[in-house]
Amino acid sequence: MGLFNYIVHKILGNIFYSDSLKGKIGELEVNNALNPYFFGKKEHKQINNLVIVDENLKSHQIDHIEIRLNGIFCIETKNYSGLIFGSENNNKWTQCLRRGKKNYFYNPIKQNKSHIFHLKKILENKYNINSLIVFTQNNADNININNVINLIDLKTYLNNFNDGTNYTSEDIDYIYNKLISSNKNISNSKHIENINNTKEEIRSGICPRCKGKLILREGKYGEFYGCSNYPYCKFTIKK
């Protein structure tokens, strides 16, 4: 558990330490970790809590975008305690707490894929965007996936990342300005309403990205629903 996270938890206790507050604290810890004063004065630009609205008037809240010489990173923050289990293809991941209690949450890799899909459209598909999932309580060791990491490993991961990308300062400025100009101010209640509408569309067999039909298909890991507009739209969800 990060220091700020720990202090707030001790002060407020379990009663007021809501899921929403935990999420905000987790985002703040990643924000602090990316801050040049702590992270090292690398050339980069950072966007926190970007909210975009797509052509279907659906809102998407993105925790962090890190734009660096060696790449663009869409960072999804998770502030869960306990032991975390899941795989890249599971729809749900598992949080195991004391006394055998378990909670389930949507696979953050799939969640981040949707964010990246919309970010790429804003950037006119000119740039690759890397997905990164950060567990702020440093309990991701049971997830054996390269881009799912602990907060303590964030600095090393970003510094050592190398896929051949080498952006210029002008590239970084352009990408930052393009993304930040897409930010929308909407209420939290409206964003939650959009999320619920998306869930309802999926239950009705409608692709939440492009409004195509969700078709039952057979894949390497069993049956799943995929968008009828594939390969343009690669949205999938396990049966």
Rank of each mutant, 00 (worst) to 15 (best):
I180M: 05
E218N: 14
D163M: 03
G212K: 06
N159H: 12
N185R: 01
D171S: 11
N197Y: 04
I172L: 01
I192F: 12
N197W: 01
K213L: 14
I186M: 01
G164F: 00
E218I: 12
C207H: 05
K184T: 08
N177E: 13
L214P: 00
I175K: 05
N166A: 14
N197A: 04
G205S: 14
S181E: 09
N188S: 10
I186K: 02
R209S: 15
I186P: 00
T198Y: 05
L216V: 08
R209P: 04
K211E: 13
I206K: 03
K213S: 15
I175V: 12
E193G: 11
T198G: 09
C210Y: 01
I192Y: 11
F161K: 08
T168Q: 12
K213P: 07
G205P: 08
R203E: 15
G219S: 09
P208H: 10
G205I: 14
N166M: 10
N162M: 04
E201Y: 11
S181C: 06
I186R: 01
N159Q: 13
D173S: 11
S181T: 11
Y176W: 06
T168H: 08
N177M: 05
E193T: 08
N185I: 00
R217G: 02
N177D: 15
I192D: 04
I192N: 12
Y174G: 07
P208K: 09
I186C: 00
E193M: 07
T168K: 04
S204K: 14
I186S: 05
K184Q: 15
C207S: 10
S182H: 12
I175W: 04
G164N: 12
E170K: 09
L158I: 13
L214N: 00
L214W: 00
K184C: 13
K213I: 10
Y176S: 01
I172W: 02
I175R: 00
D163N: 13
N185E: 06
I215M: 10
I202T: 02
N177T: 10
K220S: 12
K211H: 11
N197I: 07
I175E: 00
N188Q: 15
S181F: 02
S189P: 00
N196S: 08
T165E: 11
K211D: 07
K184I: 08
N194I: 02
C210H: 08
K190E: 12
N188K: 13
Y174R: 13
D173A: 13
I206H: 01
N188E: 12
S187E: 14
Y174P: 08
T165S: 10
S169N: 14
R217I: 07
I206E: 04
K184M: 10
T168L: 11
G164Q: 03
L214M: 00
I175C: 03
G212R: 02
L179E: 00
G205C: 08
Y176Q: 01
I175H: 02
K178R: 07
L158C: 04
K213V: 09
C207L: 10
S204F: 05
S189M: 05
G164S: 02
L216H: 04
I215L: 09
E201A: 09
N188P: 07
